[in-house]
């Protein structure tokens, strides 16, 4: 047994940065006000690593994202913190077109090891730019890997895997989980990209989700435990997606609810529904049900009750597939 301590999600990410920057001199970080630490995961890194490895930049997302690509082409392993993932949309060409597709388009010769980091999530009443979850848009573009942790353990392990990965990775974390605590080992470990995790075992219904919504699903499962046995699968990676883990679960439960905080239309949940339809139709005893953000922009103010997946909404979807 290795030693563990309780860390917050942000502290766990920060430990991954520290471990990997100690391990590999080519790893450095760039972003707006990361030295001060707009969020705690980049706080107080300069005393050990200096301002040349933890680099504050002007507010110029395209330049920062493109600089990561250029630096990776010249042999470094950059981490770019966009602060809010919504800010990465400024760098659409760099993220969707250049970083994601460079390797394939240029003859699969030169790997592009780089990590984009952004926080996201609905429910803080701060409207679209500070909330939007870009994983649906990201996985639409082949060539970039995308992950989001639901626990500090996964956060550290996924971040370490992302930094060691030889491809662009967009690492998302949920703003509401900043101070969420959990046990994290002191020893070196990674959580491989493309490996889902069964966060609760069950036999009647599979709930596939990720990030913050893993906890909504777990709360729902606990609430219904005497009635319906619910298996909660944390995707952890949206690309590559662990379809085997999902299908293994569906063989048992034959019923699927997808809880996705991103927009319903053409997103992760739509993609997985289609994959299940095409490749796992025979596994199902009921149509797939989704709980997603409605197809209108993420509003600010008090309207998050309409937009957040809640235990009630997830429960209702679970009851639907059990009918």
């Amino acid at each position: 047994m290795t030693d563990t301590r309780e860390l917050t999600l942000c502290e766990a990410i920060r430990e991954a940065y520290i471990d990997e920057m100690r391990r590999d001199e080519r790893v450095f970080m760039m972003g707006v006000s990361i030295q001060a630490g707009s969020f705690p995961h980049t706080k107080d890194l300069t005393p050990e690593f200096g301002t040349h490895r933890v680099v504050d930049t002007p507010l110029a997302e395209p330049a920062i994202a493109g600089a990561a690509i250029g630096a990776a082409q010249e042999g470094l392993r950059p981490i770019v913190d966009f602060m809010y993932a919504g800010f990465s949309y400024y760098a659409g060409s760099e993220v969707f077109m250049q970083a994601s597709q460079y390797y394939f388009l240029h003859g699969s010769q030169l790997p592009l090891p780089l990590v984009f980091v952004g926080t996201c999530g609905v429910g803080r009443r701060v409207a679209n730019e500070h909330s939007t979850l870009p994983y649906g848009a990201l996985i639409h573009h082949p060539g970039i890997k995308v992950c989001m942790p639901s626990t500090p353990y996964d956060a550290k392990g996924l971040m370490k895997a992302a930094i060691r990965e030889n491809n662009p990775v967009f690492f998302l974390w949920h703003t509401s989980m900043m101070s969420f605590k959990g046990h994290v080992p002191t020893d070196d470990y990674v959580v491989p990209l493309g490996k889902a995790d069964v966060k609760r075992e069950g036999t009647d219904v599979t709930v596939l989700t990720a990030g913050m919504q893993v906890h909504t699903a777990l709360k729902t499962a606990e609430k219904l435990k005497d009635e319906i046995s619910i298996e909660v699968i944390d995707a952890r990676s949206f690309e590559p997606f662990d379809r085997d883990a999902l299908f293994k679960s569906l063989e048992k439960t034959t019923r699927l609810v997808i809880v996705d905080e991103d927009f319903e239309r053409a997103g992760f949940s739509a993609e997985i529904s289609a994959q299940v339809m095409e490749h796992g139709y025979d596994l199902l005893d009921a149509p797939v049900k989704r709980v997603c953000h409605p197809n209108f922009p993420i509003p600010g103010g008090y309207m998050d009750v309409y937009t957040m997946p809640t235990v009630e909404k997830v429960e209702s979807a679970i009851r639907d597939v059990c009918r």
């Binding site: 330049a63 920062i64 493109g66 600089a67 250029g70 990776a72 082409q73 760099e94």
Partner: peptide, 8 residues
């Protein structure tokens, strides 16, 4: 943006 990265 890329040349910023090369220079860096």
């Amino acid at each position: 943006p890329m040349v910023v990265g090369y220079g860096f």
